[in-house]
Structures are given as C-alpha cells and as structure tokens.
Amino acid sequence: MTVYASFTHGYKSGGFNLDSTAASGGADPRFASEEVDAYEVGLKAKFLDNAVTLNVAGFHEEFTNFQVLEFTGAQFTTFNVPLAKSTGVEIETVLRPSDNLTINGGLTYTNARYPDNCAGTQTSDNVLSLCGNSLTNAPKWVGIMGATYDRDIGNSLNFFINGQIRMESDRRTSTQAFDPADLTTRTPVPFDVQDGTVKINMRAGLGEIDGAWGIEAWVTNLTNEITRGVTFNTVLRSGSRSAFIQEPRMYGLTLRGKF
C-alpha cells in the first residue's frame, strides 16, 4: 500500500482570440494567463495476491484567471474568470477473479464551480452571471463499470468480449447559467441542464494469438441516448436555443493485420 500527498502549480499562457469577429465593436481579443494550485492526497493498494487493485484520491484545485471559451451562436469569445475551484474524490478498482476475467470500476464526485465571489473586481456581466454556478459539462457524479473476458481457442486463436457502462449525473451544457442582460432576477437560460444518462459500449473480437490478424465488432452508445454537448442561443431568433448533439449510436467492424 502506498499513501501519498502532492502539490502542483500549473500555468496556461494567455493569448489572443483569433476568431475573425473577436475584435468587432471595439472588443478586446486578449485573454490573460491562467494559473492553478492543485492539492491531492490518496492511496494505492493491492490485495489478495494482486487480484484486487484499489486507488483512492481526494483533490482540490484553485484556478486564477480561469480561461473560458464561449460559443455564442455567432462567434467564439474568450474571457477570464478571476476565480474557479474544483474539489472531489476519485475511487478506482480493478478485480481479477480469474485469469480470463477482468472487472474494472470507478466513481468520481466533483464539485467544479465558480464561487460566489468568482468575479473579484470585475464588473463584466458575462463573468458576474457565472458566480455561484457549476462549470460547464462538469457533472457531480460519474460512474464507470466494465468487464473483459478473454480466452484462447485451441493453440492459435484468441477471443475476447468487453462491455463498458458510463453513468453521469445532471450537468450544465451552456457557458452562461443566467441571461447576462438580466442579472437582477437571475433567470436560468432555457435548456441549459442535460439530465443524467447511462451509455453502454460493447466490443468483441477474434484473432490469432500472435496478433498477425484480428477482427472486432463494436458498438458505442448501444441504446442510442441523445444528449447535448453544448447549448447556445440561436442566431437571429430571440428566445430560441440550439445545441450540438453528442455522438449517437455507432457500430462497425475493425480488421487488423500485421505484416
């Protein structure tokens, strides 16, 4: 068993928004450098003759001048939020009940948020409207579970089948949580929250043990869950919202060869 603690200081350089409309109307296309202080404590352990692996970690990150890239429906804008924080716990495990079966699982709780005082001395509405809300596409809970079974067939072939399930809680899909033009009532923007979902991926394959050739059949998002990745205001249609949809169900065959 290993117990550890760490501190890191990270840096992401600033720059210029190269979108062709970034400087329209006298807007400033520059954005400042982002810095982060990250703290982590955890343990890594193996049990039962290495049949069980367990990793647990707790983390806390504080971002200064957090860089935000926002798609407004008409252009990409970049700006800094003076303060953002992320705190959480990760648990990962791998079980090997037999030589042919491997089971993996993971659970993450993350509270990624803009604190109530995130704006600091800034007075920009697009920054003030974020304070007190979660970061975009940062669900509080994410769970993953999967299993792989593989075995030899005769002296020359190998077969495997794998399944993975990913579960996540509700998450915000747009940069702005509230309409920046109406910060008094702080009315949530419509269609902002994507409900929690469960997605399933599967893969099965057959090939030579030495890897000379192989064929695999696979499917992602087996149940065809339709989810939003990014939500934004529809151009020239006041009150209307649009969204970029994440990948639907896909399936196919993969052929591998080594010469």
Rank of each mutant, 00 (worst) to 15 (best):
F59G: 06
F59E: 10
E62W: 12
F63I: 06
T64H: 14
N65Y: 01
V68Q: 06
E70I: 05
E70W: 00
T72G: 05
T72I: 03
G73Q: 09
G73H: 05
A74N: 14
A74C: 02
F76Y: 15
F76K: 07
T77N: 12
T77G: 12
T78F: 09
F79A: 11
N80M: 13
V81F: 12
P82H: 01
P82I: 04
P82Y: 00
P82Q: 00
L83A: 11
A84G: 04
K85T: 15
K85D: 10
T87N: 12
G88Q: 07
V89M: 13
V89Q: 01
E90L: 02
E90H: 10
I91L: 14
E92Q: 13
T93P: 00
T93N: 02
V94E: 13
V94P: 01
L95M: 03
L95D: 05
R96G: 09
R96W: 00
P97V: 03
S98Y: 06
S98N: 02
S98K: 05
D99L: 02
D99H: 02
D99W: 00
N100A: 10
L101C: 01
L101R: 01
L101E: 02
T102G: 04
L107I: 14
Y109C: 03
T110D: 08
T110K: 02
T110S: 13
T110I: 14
T110A: 14
N111V: 13
A112K: 06
Y114L: 07
Y114W: 15
Y114G: 10
Y114A: 05
P115C: 07
P115M: 08
N117Q: 07
N117W: 01
C118P: 14
G120F: 01
Q122T: 09
Q122H: 07
